[in-house]
Nucleic acid binder design. Structure first.
Lengths: 141, 141
DNA sequence: ATGATACTTGACTATTTTAGTCAGGTTTAT
DNA sequence: ATAAACCTGACTAAAATAGTCAAGTATCAT
């Protein structure tokens, strides 16, 4: 079980952005340089973030991206949802009718994975972008 | 982020085993049939579980596997460790000297992934095989 | 003894996912 | 006008996953 780069980079890029946001739009080029993330990959990610109304784009020279909400209101859940980072512990849930093994009953551990998913998602729901920025500023002092 | 089959199957198989354990060794063939898991794959998994002293094997006719400890003492952590199911949120930790992006500093979100890993691992440390068996018996009533 | 049952080991592989790259746009500030 | 910036979608090499396959060895019931 591990996190994918897409999700990790999305969060990193947004933390970077959130730190400069109140001044000017931040260009992906800058984020790419500062965070060491491929520009092309960032574009893919930000395309999704924009569609999910987490950021706004500003075109033209001196353009870039700005947050679409306050950092406090952007939770990790929102970010992961936007870039299709899913916490998926188990297959069983896709098929609505059938049970987990193609059998009619739930698998022995069905409830467990449910609990685990909730446990992880709670963590993501509580944590906001603001928390991360703060955490970072404290470390820099 | 998702769990691999190896980890899931390991837990499923052990719950199955734990339910019959006090009577006789349970053969992989039976587990395979009941849980719909490939016998060959189960053998791979149980080989690891045995090496990690989670189960004992009983050879010969009527042989099979039995738990090596009480179900209460087998935590999910132990099972996942045994089958190499790792919670790995981030690459940064491998390289001891360098930072996360090959830079000298930690990446902006380093602490976050640390916290997340702990959050998940705590869940695994608390949950025992006995809990799962109980949960299952309750559901069957 | 011997056959059946069961465990043991290790190599192999098709499929899927990941982590991007690449190419060719369009839009807008100056 | 033009450079900086965003936008889109197709493509792909490499790694991980989820097993399969083959060839054993050990033990027990009879």
């Amino acid at each position: 079980m591990k996190l994918t780069s897409k999700g990790r980079y999305a969060v990193m890029a947004l933390v970077d952005l959130a730190r400069f946001d109140n001044i000017n739009p931040v260009s992906l080029r800058d984020i790419s340089l500062r965070q060491g993330i491929s520009l092309d990959f960032l574009e893919q990610i930000f395309s999704k973030l924009r569609k999910n109304e987490i950021v706004q784009s500003v075109r033209g020279t001196q353009g870039g991206y700005i947050l679409n909400k306050k950092a406090k209101e952007i939770k990790l859940t929102n970010i992961f949802d936007a870039v299709d980072e899913k916490v998926k512990t188990v297959q069983c849930k896709k098929e609505s009718k059938k049970g987990c093994n193609g059998k009619s009953t739930k698998c022995l551990t069905h409830n467990l994975w449910d609990e685990l998913e909730n446990h992880i998602n709670n963590f993501f729901k509580e944590k906001s972008l603001e928390d991360l920025v703060k955490d970072n500023n404290e470390r820099r002092i």
